[in-house]
């Protein structure tokens, strides 16, 4: 499998790395290890959660090594605590650095969220307020991570359920500042845009236009579930346990029109369907990517 070389390695600290191809990929789940090796589906890349592979040995590493031989790899962290008020866990950062050293993934991404506080890991992506103090802290954390990992990371926009009275900036504006100041890239999760905009009554077009679309390195697509808040208003939950919704596909096409074809992940963490079902969603994303490339080329 050939991999494209990133045309614009903008960060001065990050040497040029092979980039993900502008194709559709899927979350790699242990349930699909064997199927992928047996059926070798034509998938653009696979993505794993870093923390699941911070183990010494066993089937996870065995299969990731095998699959990595044939597919481009993206590693997605869920526990770096980039948005945390307390200092990053240096030991955790070291373990992540070791993992990236071992697998040399085309891409490493993390979340604009906090996950730990006071020595407790909450196993959830928790929201932060958006003000200048938070901005400085997040940029320092990203600096620390990028320096330690010796590469640019992508930062994912969050799905949130509450806002904070202390916030002085809109989320998209905050993300734009972080990307500009830290030199990280953007992992644009289109489902999160839909969820967040629904939950906070924002206009997704405006939200997306405020984002630094020139720095998008990867796109995530996923499914959500539907709840109601205390007043009966729709509250979407970023559950990753359902197919990508129509609304998110529409938003995705719009995003491709604005930022061009980008590596796109079909993300699935719950109700894991058979591999062909995920692959079919990836093919749909790929048809939209192709259409976008044809327009770009014409």
């Amino acid at each position: 499998m050939t991999v494209a070389i990133s045309p614009g390695s903008t960060s001065d600290r990050a040497p040029a790395k092979p980039a993900l191809p502008p194709r559709a990929g899927i979350s790699l789940k242990p349930e699909h290890y064997r199927d992928i090796l047996d059926s070798r589906p034509d998938i653009g890349f696979v993505e794993v959660h870093a923390e699941n592979y911070l183990v010494d040995g066993g089937p996870y590493h065995y299969y990731l090594n095998r699959i990595r031989e044939d597919y481009a790899l993206s590693i997605h962290g869920v526990g770096m605590n980039i948005g945390g008020e307390q200092p990053l866990d240096a030991a955790h950062l070291d373990r992540i650095a070791g993992l990236l050293e071992r697998y040399q993934p085309a891409c490493f991404s993390e979340h604009l969220a906090w996950t730990s506080h006071g020595g407790i890991y909450f196993n959830d992506l928790l929201p932060l307020n958006y003000d200048s103090e938070a901005l400085q802290r997040v940029c320092e954390h990203i600096d620390q991570v990028q320096n330690r990992l010796q590469r640019q990371i992508l930062l994912e926009n969050p799905a949130t359920y509450v806002e904070f009275g202390r916030s002085t900036m809109a989320e998209a504006e905050f993300i734009g500042e972080v990307v500009m100041r830290s030199g990280c890239g953007l992992l644009l999760d289109v489902n999160n845009v839909h969820v967040t905009c629904t939950n906070h009554n924002l206009d997704p077009d405006t939200y997306i236009r405020q984002l630094p679309l020139g720095q998008v390195g990867e796109i995530h697509l996923a499914g959500f579930s539907r709840e109601q808040d205390a007043d009966g208003a729709t509250l979407l939950i970023d559950s990753h346990d359902a197919p990508v919704s129509e609304a998110v596909w529409t938003l995705y096409e719009d995003v491709l029109g604005r930022c061009g074809a980008k590596p796109t992940l079909i993300e699935r963490d719950g109700n894991i369907p058979p591999l062909p079902t995920l692959h079919a969603e990836a093919r749909h994303a790929e048809s939209l990517l192709k259409a976008c490339q044809e327009i770009e080329g014409s």
Partner: peptide, 21 residues
């Protein structure tokens, strides 16, 4: 030998949200 490999243990780190409220 690989085909004998039985149960794949699920990964416990993910970024999904739970079953709503």
């Amino acid at each position: 030998m690989e085909k004998c490999f039985g149960v794949a243990m699920k990964g416990k780190n993910d970024c999904k949200a739970g079953a709503g409220t």
